[in-house]
Amino acid sequence: MARTREIKRRIKSIDNTKQITRTMEMVAGAKIRKSQERIENSRPYTTKMMEVLANLSSYVKAGKHPLLEVHEKQERVYVLSITSNRGLCGAFNTNIIRKTESILEREKQADREILLSVAGQKGINYFKYCGYELLSEYTEIGDSPKFEDAREIAAKIMEMYINHEVDKVLIVFNHFKSVMDQRPIEYNILPIEKDMAEGEKERVIRDDYIFEPSPEKVLYELLPTYVETLVYRTLMESVASEHGARRTAMKAASDNAVEMIGQLTMTFNRARQAQITQEISEIVGGAEALK
């Protein structure tokens, strides 16, 4: 009796867990769609901006701008690691943390001072626990990153770069390859690489534009916005990846739960049968003794 009751209780508890993971899987699925849409929505902005930049770079000898300038001394690196606020998303955060640590190690060997910033509660907890000094912590980025969030981060980065407080800025984030596939990558955000500012080469470059007030001024206004857009993109990709990773993890959990329930049900039936058999043999045995 005791054994069957115990198995039954386990089945019930696993079933509860399954319900939770199923729901989370579904919620994450819906959120992936939303965040993918958001990436789509920002695409026109990004491509149009690239176009203008490409046009501009044929006018302006761009080397002068402090954001394009490569610092002579490469002594300090700023690393921004983007993790999530919530867990239960498989290896999402672990991947980022591991990648960040390998970068920190690499930069340390190159004798560079490292300034580390982390977005997302999970990463912040980890790096604090490991005893790292964090320059800034960003936790307000939720399921729908706002352009303002990106602005805040970008403004800080650019200020430090222009003041020569850092010589290189890297962002580590989960690149959203597809719903099933997200991988951590590092992205060199500052100095702005020249080929990038120049955009795709095949694009027709027109040479009869009027620039208001002047090409230089337009470029100077544009470059900071370009950096902000890049940061915004990484945030959005990271959020989309988070939901993707969570859905994969939750799907695996639900599938495991189903399998476990199947096995336990079988054990339960066996135990029940064994019990009945035993009871019958006891009755038969008892009847036999009475003869």
């Binding site: 534009y209 009027i210 620039f211 208001e212 007030p213 206004e221």
Partner: peptide, 18 residues
């Protein structure tokens, strides 16, 4: 625009302004 308002009518010449 930065230096006053910019009005654009159809068939305007190509331009970029801040």
């Amino acid at each position: 625009g930065l230096e006053g308002e910019v009005g654009i009518l159809p068939l305007h010449a190509p331009m970029v302004a801040v």
